[in-house]
C-alpha cells in the first residue's frame, strides 16, 4: 500500500486531470442529490410553513415526529425504499430498483423531514412577528404561507443547503436502492466505500477531496447567505 502522501498526490492528479470516470461519478452524485433536495423543498417548505401557521389537534405530535425524522438512519430509509421498489413490493411494477430514480426517492425521503423541520422553526418565528398584521389584513392561509416562504427565503435557503449536505454525504440509502452499479448508480459515497474495500485508495481519496470541498462550499454558502440577509435586513 502506498503511503498517505503519494495517495494524496495521486488523488489530486485524478481530480486535476479530469478523469472521465471520476467526473461521471461526481455528475451523477450531484444530479441525484440536487434533484432530491429540489423535491424535498417542494414538499418540505410548504409543509413546514403549514405546521408553523395552522393550529390543529395533534400538531405538536406531528412536529415531534418531524423533528425525530430529521435523524432518520439512511440505511433504514434505504431498506424501506428497497422493500417498496423490489419486485415483490407495492411499487415493484415500476422497475425502479437500482436506478438513479430509486436513489432520488430514497434521498428525498431522507431529506424532506430535515428541510420541513428547519423550515417550520424559521417560519414559526416569522409568523409570530407577522401574525397580527396578517390577521388585520384578513390574509388567506395560502397567501400567509406564500408570504412567509418568500420573506423567509434566506433562512429557507440555509435549510435547503443543510438538506443538500445530508444528501450528498449519505451512503446507506443509495447503496441499498442503487446497488453501486458502475456508470449507472455509482455515486461518490458508494464509490469511496467500494474503492476503499478494493484497496484503490487514490480514487477513494480523490472522491473524498471532492466531498470535503463540497462540504466547505455548502458551509460557506450558508454563512454568506446569512450575512447577506442580515446586512440587507432580510433575516
Amino acid at each position: 500500500m502506498s503511503d498517505s502522501g503519494s495517495i494524496f498526490s495521486l488523488a489530486l492528479g485524478l481530480v486535476l486531470s479530469g478523469d472521465a470516470e471520476l467526473w461521471s461519478i461526481i455528475a451523477l452524485s450531484l444530479r441525484v442529490s440536487l434533484t432530491a433536495v429540489a423535491l424535498a423543498c417542494l414538499i418540505g417548505l410548504p409543509l413546514g410553513a403549514f405546521l408553523a401557521v395552522v393550529k390543529f389537534p395533534g400538531r405538536d405530535a406531528v412536529v415531534a415526529l418531524l423533528n425525530a425524522f430529521m435523524g432518520l438512519p439512511p440505511v433504514v430509509v434505504g431498506l424501506f425504499v428497497y422493500l417498496a421498489l423490489s419486485r415483490s413490493g407495492p411499487l415493484g411494477v415500476l422497475g425502479l430498483l437500482y436506478t438513479p430514480t430509486a436513489m432520488i426517492i430514497a434521498q428525498t425521503i431522507l431529506v424532506t423531514p430535515l428541510i420541513a423541520a428547519l423550515a417550520r422553526q424559521s417560519m414559526a418565528d416569522l409568523h409570530v412577528e407577522y401574525d397580527e398584521l396578517f390577521r388585520s389584513l384578513g390574509l388567506s392561509m395560502s397567501r400567509t404561507i406564500a408570504a412567509l416562504i418568500w420573506d423567509g427565503r434566506y433562512s429557507l435557503s440555509t435549510a435547503a443547503l443543510a438538506g443538500f449536505g445530508r444528501a450528498i454525504a449519505e451512503v446507506g440509502a443509495v447503496i441499498i436502492v442503487g446497488g453501486n452499479i458502475e456508470h449507472v448508480t455509482r455515486v461518490m459515497t458508494t464509490a469511496i466505500a467500494l474503492e476503499t474495500s478494493k484497496g484503490d485508495l487514490a480514487l477513494a481519496m480523490a472522491l473524498g477531496l471532492i466531498l470535503i470541498t463540497l462540504a466547505l462550499f455548502v458551509n460557506s454558502a450558508v454563512l454568506t447567505l446569512n450575512r447577506t440577509a442580515r446586512r440587507l435586513a432580510y433575516a
Binding site: 412577528e129 407577522y130 397580527e132 398584521l133 388585520s136 384578513g138 408570504a147 420573506d151 423567509g152 435586513a233 432580510y234 433575516a235
Partner: peptide
Amino acid sequence: ARQAMVFQRPTMLR
C-alpha cells in the same frame, strides 16, 4: 376588511 390597524412597533415585511 373596512378597517386597518397600525401597531406601535410597525411590522415591516422583509
